[in-house]
Design a protein around this nucleic acid. Sequence first.
DNA 1: GATGAATGAGGCTTCATTCAT
DNA 2: CATGAATGAAGCCTCATTCAT
Lengths: 225, 225, 225, 225
Amino acid sequence: MTQQRYPVEKDQAPPSRSALRRQREREQRLQTILDAAGTLFAREGYHRTGMERIADKAEVSVGTVYFYFKNKEDLLVKLLDQTGYELRNLLGAAFKNADGTLEGLRKAGKVFFEDFCPNHPEKIALIFRESAGQSEVVEAHRKKIFDKLIADLQAALKSVSDNLGSFRSPMAAEVIAASILGMFERLAYHYMIWQDRPDALQAVGEDAVRFIIGGVQNCLKSKRP
Amino acid sequence: MTQQRYPVEKDQAPPSRSALRRQREREQRLQTILDAAGTLFAREGYHRTGMERIADKAEVSVGTVYFYFKNKEDLLVKLLDQTGYELRNLLGAAFKNADGTLEGLRKAGKVFFEDFCPNHPEKIALIFRESAGQSEVVEAHRKKIFDKLIADLQAALKSVSDNLGSFRSPMAAEVIAASILGMFERLAYHYMIWQDRPDALQAVGEDAVRFIIGGVQNCLKSKRP
Amino acid sequence: MTQQRYPVEKDQAPPSRSALRRQREREQRLQTILDAAGTLFAREGYHRTGMERIADKAEVSVGTVYFYFKNKEDLLVKLLDQTGYELRNLLGAAFKNADGTLEGLRKAGKVFFEDFCPNHPEKIALIFRESAGQSEVVEAHRKKIFDKLIADLQAALKSVSDNLGSFRSPMAAEVIAASILGMFERLAYHYMIWQDRPDALQAVGEDAVRFIIGGVQNCLKSKRP
Amino acid sequence: MTQQRYPVEKDQAPPSRSALRRQREREQRLQTILDAAGTLFAREGYHRTGMERIADKAEVSVGTVYFYFKNKEDLLVKLLDQTGYELRNLLGAAFKNADGTLEGLRKAGKVFFEDFCPNHPEKIALIFRESAGQSEVVEAHRKKIFDKLIADLQAALKSVSDNLGSFRSPMAAEVIAASILGMFERLAYHYMIWQDRPDALQAVGEDAVRFIIGGVQNCLKSKRP
DNA sequence: GATGAATGAGGCTTCATTCAT
DNA sequence: CATGAATGAAGCCTCATTCAT
């Protein structure tokens, strides 16, 4: 549209004010659609939610949804990735500055059960229910997310073992990491989705953490003189 | 239950030989269809499996499938219930004659990872993937199955606590039960479905059991003299 | 089955006792099935009634229904014919011994509204609702029945006109006959099926008869000296 | 109703030209589909007409039919309502400016037999044949239409009776109204659908009207000075 | 004669996706 | 960029009819 007055070094013209605004609006709209889809997927189920429903809720037309997302699956994938990213950040933060001690696991449990679960029940439904078994593409993303969460947990466990003694078995770290994820998953599902008892989550979290810590310790060759 | 002391005159003719045979054939065919559906659901996914595919694989006509099952959902529900029943029996047997000790949990882990998982990968997929978020009816059955498994585990934990000391928290038994289920679920999914490493399952099971036992002990107020 | 010992003159061996009994049972069963079908067709509608429902109600198997009737349509046709036959007999009797006077029409109206309608609501539904527009074959039978009823009425009107004076128009007799049938049809439908007021039928019949008689008279060139 | 004295500022933008055109096209297409369905229902029968046939005849896709109509039943209901509306208007117009005399009935008969029947045989088939006994919903609409037609006729009869003398029986007006409808129905069916003699309809109409007028008069307590 | 399990063509409907305006 | 009408493949399910036992 506007002519380039000076050659730009690489590939980025300084964006005009209106271009910035448009960019912002664009992202807002994208997120609006994503939120609408997320809510509906969680509430009604991925398959029972039609594209028109999503468009309606986001107050746009079906065509617009397709302008922002390749297809319905893409919507689910983006939502899934967003949730995974958020979850990793949350747990990652818990492990910061707790290297080497079991405190990181405690914080991670606390933040998951007391922050994430009660505030994002629809994300629980999305990542642990709706994204299960939908298509190869979705499953691939799901695997990647779970793998990364497990890797993060495994890294945290590694630093614990560096400090408190190595694991008795070579697979222990991975197994424990996956176990913790499984615990979080099933407990969240059980208490948030099936029983809808957000009030119970604090106690649940405490018990879960106690269980985890006992479990981890039992898998370590204790490093005592 | 109670034996008939005298033969009952009429009201219930002894089923003829041919009637018995037909009854048997009927059940065989029903199971054939169920198996076909189970395999396809696990391999291709519930939604991507059409009724015609199922009929073809079972070598019957579509109408026959509907003669034995109300609808597609019914197929999934029956499959789910069957799997749930099997799993409960398996774990239940592990807890028999191990009351009061942690031996029951060890056996349960062993039998799940070393027997159930490698021999029934499709049931893992079915109960932990395909049955998730399909419909209210399916979800209700899923909840019932999970609830029962949790109740069984909880009962086993109760008898452990009777023996070794009570739990530090009132919810502990339930939380631990759900946690163990979650561990089994995610580990089975991780190593069977995503990594397809049935050979790793023995080691995984051992680590998982060690983790569980440590976890349980840590949640008990130790009963020491 | 049994050999013919002596040549039978035309085509009928003297039926044995058991053959007679079988014949009777056969007809009873046939009628049972027909009744079951009639009830269900009237209550649930021809299309929404499956053959299995009919067999169940008649306490026989589906195969047996097909032994007695060629197909579902045949069931409807037989039922329709039976009803038509009954209706013709009923109205025919009303015209007996009333030749030449309007008394026959009065009696016909009376017997239709006060006998037939309240006692056979399901036949009203069958002939005036369920048999409409089902297939060419059914429609052909329906036409034949209606045509005959109209012909009967027309004959009755003819004898009235012989007595009281000829009709002003050549088509009058046929038109009036069809009109009377239409009146009966719609009044029966209105008061029995839609309003379910069998108690009103006497009054309805009286008004209808008065209307008919006035109508007929108005179409006659009165034969007065 | 009330004129806007001042232009309303916003809230309702004047529909753009293209919007108007689209609205028009939309209604045209809807009517095209309705016509296609009406023709096929009348010619082949409601049940023997598949949705694909309808779509083909209307030169649209199946999906488009479902975009404009909820389902097949809806198509029939809309068609039925349209026909009922048309019929009421037709007869209603006949009664205008004929209050108190029998002229209205004469005109109504004339317009029905000489205009409606020969010009819309498919609507005769639809309202008097195809819509009979199809489903509860359809039957409910059918009842409503017939009830309204009867009510209209009844009102016309009422004004006749106001003029010429009251009816001998309290139900007479309703009975006669239903009777007239039944006559129209059966005569139209008889001469248009079964005998396909549109040429006979004029004579039929005249006889029918003569019959009706005689009938009505016979039901009135004649009001003579 | 009677049974009822098996058949499979055909029906209705949904819904993700496209594209002219 | 946004719209929403149009598409049509694909899915689930029904049910009249048959036939081996």
